[in-house]
């Protein structure tokens, strides 16, 4: 009974936040930039949840998530340019390709432990980036501009930012719900056991290779999905922007900041860190280039040195203390 009440309370809060997010664009009609920052926040909530699955739950430090993101972006864009295919189909093709790449790559390197897996993913990501930088068919270093179509749902193109806002909000919510579901599921339990003691998990009869691959592939799907939508939003993709390792790195920083292996962590991290970085960049103008990264670096250093559990654990502790105070 008491649990039911708690859930209702929690649900009510989430419902209020959702209503606020749905109504927010009404107040931002003259502030396209703020709307843009919101969209980027949603993008990173989704990408960070994807990283959270493979890194936070299954404990495999992947620096290749931006490659899956780029595969999504490039696939749908190429299909749109050459076959005039709707991105709604391109989106699924992109996810399928990213999933296959993740499966093959994961099959080869997921047995590597700790640092080795991390550096192997970096090497793979760099190879893909270098190949794309030199591959004329995909625009090489110049990248691809998306052909401008009639603004429509069919082409996933609109002249205003508003529809994008709702689409990215939806994707962020879906990926968070997905992670929430996995968090509560048996697979979530297996992922966490693999992270804590992989051989121990094998000794419980868990097919650790299968579950690591599963986490990797699902993670790649989310990234590719976001990649397609991002390309539709930005209308221009190139290896230097889409395959920048900083995309994966930012995800890691966001997850670490918010709280590793928690559902709320990536949301908290993205909501705090992305606007902060954007704000510094704006505040310091053109000369402020680079400051956002310095601030990221400083925040992460402070987090790993003093609060490696992330901000979410601070909030949880505060809540506990408040409850204790209320009780007494």
């Amino acid at each position: 009974m008491k649990n039911g009440m708690n859930f209702f309370k929690k649900g009510k809060w989430l419902f209020l936040i959702l209503i606020a997010l749905l109504l927010l664009p009404n107040f931002l009609k003259d502030e396209p930039y703020v709307l843009h920052v919101c969209i980027i926040v949603f993008v990173y909530v989704s990408l960070a949840q994807a990283w959270n699955l493979i890194g936070g739950y299954a404990g495999q430090i992947s620096f290749v998530n931006h490659t899956f993101f780029a595969i999504g972006a490039y696939t749908s864009t190429m299909l749109l340019i050459y076959l005039n295919l709707t991105p709604w189909i391109g989106l699924f093709v992109g996810m399928a390709i990213a999933g296959c790449v993740a499966y093959v790559l994961g099959f080869q390197i997921l047995h590597l432990k700790g640092h080795y897996f991390a550096v192997a993913t970096i090497a793979f990501a760099e190879i893909v980036k270098l190949l794309f930088l030199n591959w004329r068919g995909v625009g090489a270093a110049y990248g691809l501009s998306l052909p401008l179509k009639m603004p429509s749902f069919y082409y996933l193109m609109w002249s205003s930012k508003l529809p994008y806002y709702y689409i990215f909000l939806l994707v962020a919510i879906i990926s968070t719900i997905l992670i929430y579901t996995i968090d509560k599921s048996k697979a979530g339990m297996y992922f966490r056991s693999i992270k804590q003691d992989e051989d121990g998990a094998k000794h419980k009869g868990i097919d650790t290779r299968y579950y690591k691959l599963l986490a990797f592939v699902i993670s790649a799907w989310i990234c590719a999905l976001v990649g397609t939508l991002y390309a539709q939003y930005i209308l221009y993709i190139c290896p230097r922007s889409c395959m920048d390792i900083m995309i994966s790195t930012k995800c890691i920083l966001i997850v670490l900041f918010g709280g590793l292996g928690t559902v709320a962590g990536p949301v908290l991290g993205a909501v705090i860190l992305i606007p902060l970085a954007e704000y510094t960049r704006i505040k310091l103008g053109g000369g402020g280039q680079g400051w956002d990264y310095i601030i990221y670096g400083l925040i992460i250093l402070v987090i790993v040195l003093y609060q490696p559990q992330g901000v979410y654990s601070i909030l949880r502790r505060c809540k506990k203390n408040v409850q204790k105070m209320l009780r007494s």
Partner: peptide, 10 residues
């Protein structure tokens, strides 16, 4: 079922 374990609880 390993696939269903994604959403199933114990």
């Amino acid at each position: 079922s390993r696939i269903r374990s994604i959403y199933k609880k114990s």
